[in-house]
Design a protein around this nucleic acid. Structure first.
Lengths: 166, 166
DNA sequence: GACAAGCCTGTTATAGTATCACGCGAGCCG
DNA sequence: CGGCTCGCGTGATACTATAACAGGCTTGTC
């Protein structure tokens, strides 16, 4: 039996500070379990990614890492992003060249994203049945699946409502 | 009722010349139907894309467009690629920054790709049920879907067989 | 403490991908 | 003709990512 988990876009009124704290706490756990170090640098990048629930660009992170008189260089942020990605703590949105925090880094899952092209909001879904179906299709061609990415462009509920109202 | 179409990786022994010819003929039809012009330049880019069944990079196309003494510039190829993409004649593989010809530009479909990370071969699948499921999931969140991209990384049958043999 | 090994970070340079902005010429239509 | 759109050429530039090398911190061992 396949379990279908659907998450929603983040609630506009949620407690975002604790939301970030939770993400960082989960990250500590994940890294510990993997025997890897969530260094201050990596931690800071992860926090910056979580500062918004929107996709974040590498070079935006770079700016936020920089201080007057101390300009961070690209490898700094890319190394951190690579690390976080391998640990499953963030995802890369291929169609946007951007990154976003993963809300459930603990469970292995394939990424399925709804991306609102109007406001930039992103929802991560996790439908195991969908993954299973893709796997089945692939198997019929003798193809062994490593991982899959699903990115869906469209318009979110709020933007649709705004259109209808305005 | 949802129809499920699964295509395969291109046969190694198919008649590739006529395969290209067919693609160009289909392109003429599609452009005519859309009231748009498949200019020599656009046609040439499309042909270059179809020369292989592998994903092609924009700058590779650029080189192939260039002749000694006449260096093509990026906008040349990107404009053609944008046109072809809007016409549904090619797809962009987001995870590869590469482009590939669409075998069925006539029917509107969402793209689902199996990408062999070993040999670079790509199969385009078209499973309407999968699309329907994604749409249904999105609808539950009040999300209106414009288009979706599915890119699956893994190993193709041939590469698996080669591994098993060697 | 001395040392080695591995990991993490800094820095400079460069590769790779894509777009902007401007202008020109061909074709169409009034 | 005059004005329009479209396709294309060109030079510059923006954006995304990696290579290559050096130094420094941490840990484990003796």
């Amino acid at each position: 039996m396949s379990r279908s988990v659907i998450q929603d876009f983040p609630d506009r009124d949620h407690d975002h500070d604790s939301c970030i704290d939770d993400a960082l706490a989960r990250a500590e756990t994940v890294c510990a379990a993997r025997g890897e170090r969530l260094t201050p640098q990596r931690r800071q990048v992860l926090e910056l990614v979580w500062r918004s629930h929107r996709p974040v660009k590498a070079y935006d992170l770079l700016e936020r890492l920089s201080r007057p008189g101390r300009r961070a260089a690209p490898p700094t942020v890319y190394r951190a992003l690579d690390f976080l990605r391998e640990a499953g703590l963030i995802h890369r949105l291929e169609s946007l060249n951007a990154f976003i925090g993963c809300p459930r880094p603990d469970m292995r899952h394939s990424a399925q994203f709804l991306i609102c092209t109007r406001c930039g909001a992103v929802a991560e879904m996790d439908d195991a049945a969908l993954t299973a179906k893709i796997d089945a299709n692939a198997r019929r061609l003798g193809f062994k699946v490593d991982d899959e990415k699903i990115e869906v462009n469209g318009t979110c509920r709020e933007c649709l409502a705004r259109d209808a109202a305005g």
